[in-house]
Amino acid sequence: MLDQLRAMGVFACVVEKSSFSGAARELGITTSAVSQQIRSLEQEMDVTLLHRSTRKLSLTEAGQAFFLSCQEMLAAAERGKIRINELRDDLVGDLRISTTPELGALHVIPALSHWMSAHKGLAIHFEADHRYIDLIEERIDIAVRMSLKMDDHNLTAVPLARVDQVLVASPSYLNQSLPITRPEDLRHHELLPVTLMQNYQHFAFRHGLSGEVVNVDMKTRLGTNNVFVAKSLCQQGHGIARILYMDIQKELINGSLVEVLPDWHMPSYTLHALTSKREQYPMKVHRCIDALKQYFAQLPGGRSLQGVA
């Protein structure tokens, strides 16, 4: 099939140049190669496409019809090439982004809001789900995911922000409960877990100054797979929640929630923009990741990564 398409291109060039030698110069091949391509077409279709004379070439009736088909084919190929270049270099076409509902609502949409408004040629779909999504199978261009470490070698991971985990509780809960001065005191309190976290009942603490390490397991009675629900339970005084810092900033600022054990640190998560590995990425993917990096670099509290490549 490819040989036939190549021969059709050669035939169209011969007609446009009105000579075999002119087509050969245009295509960078020999005149005999051009002649062979035309003979192959004629033999395959069992027709004569060109009247040959020492002075000029002219199209047969079959050649005229075939030439029109060749022109349509070449025009379609050129349109395809232009479209590919647009999709690669310009911010047009489809862009599919995967994230969790919480990350999407709290951060990804605010991060991309102005960028989306500035590029009306992009049709953007957000796949918001807690399940693991195969980027290739579900045609995802960018996945925004939080993890303690990234070890999937089939993906390219761009770090966007390093985010601390914090323990929080409502002032009313803390006022009515046993005091918490060390991690061991948590054993006397109720955890409100976001059950999507691995080993959500287990806590590994390191003191910010002394480096002392303490491991604690907390008891749970209430739980949820959603950050918004965990915050609501916490604000209503039902216990202590472990939430990522960037998901709790507003509540810490307005005082509706208070950080518990602020001098003790838990392992940090890294927020990544993930893409399937390939040699060349469309410009829309690059620019979208740039917009995400710019947003997360401006998070307050010094929790984001600086100078991310």
Rank of each mutant, 00 (worst) to 15 (best):
R39V: 14
L41D: 09
E42Q: 13
E42S: 10
E42G: 09
M45G: 03
D46K: 13
D46I: 06
V47I: 12
T48E: 03
L49R: 08
L49H: 04
R52S: 12
S53R: 08
S53Q: 05
S53G: 14
R55S: 15
L57V: 11
L57H: 11
S58D: 10
L59D: 06
E61R: 12
E61P: 04
Q64A: 13
Q64R: 12
Q64M: 09
Q64P: 04
A65D: 15
F66S: 05
L68K: 13
L68W: 07
S69D: 14
Q71S: 07
E72H: 13
E72S: 12
L74F: 02
A76W: 10
E78C: 06
R79D: 12
R79S: 13
G80V: 06
K81P: 00
I82P: 02
I82T: 14
I82E: 14
R83S: 05
L87F: 09
L87C: 06
L87V: 00
R88K: 10
R88N: 10
D89P: 04
D90T: 03
L91V: 08
G93V: 09
G93E: 11
D94A: 15
D94Q: 15
R96W: 08
R96N: 10
I97F: 00
S98G: 07
T99S: 08
T99V: 04
T99Y: 02
E102R: 05
L103I: 02
G104E: 03
A105N: 08
L106Q: 09
L106S: 04
H107L: 07
H107C: 09
P110Y: 05
P110A: 03
P110R: 04
A111Y: 01
L112A: 07
S113D: 14
H114D: 15
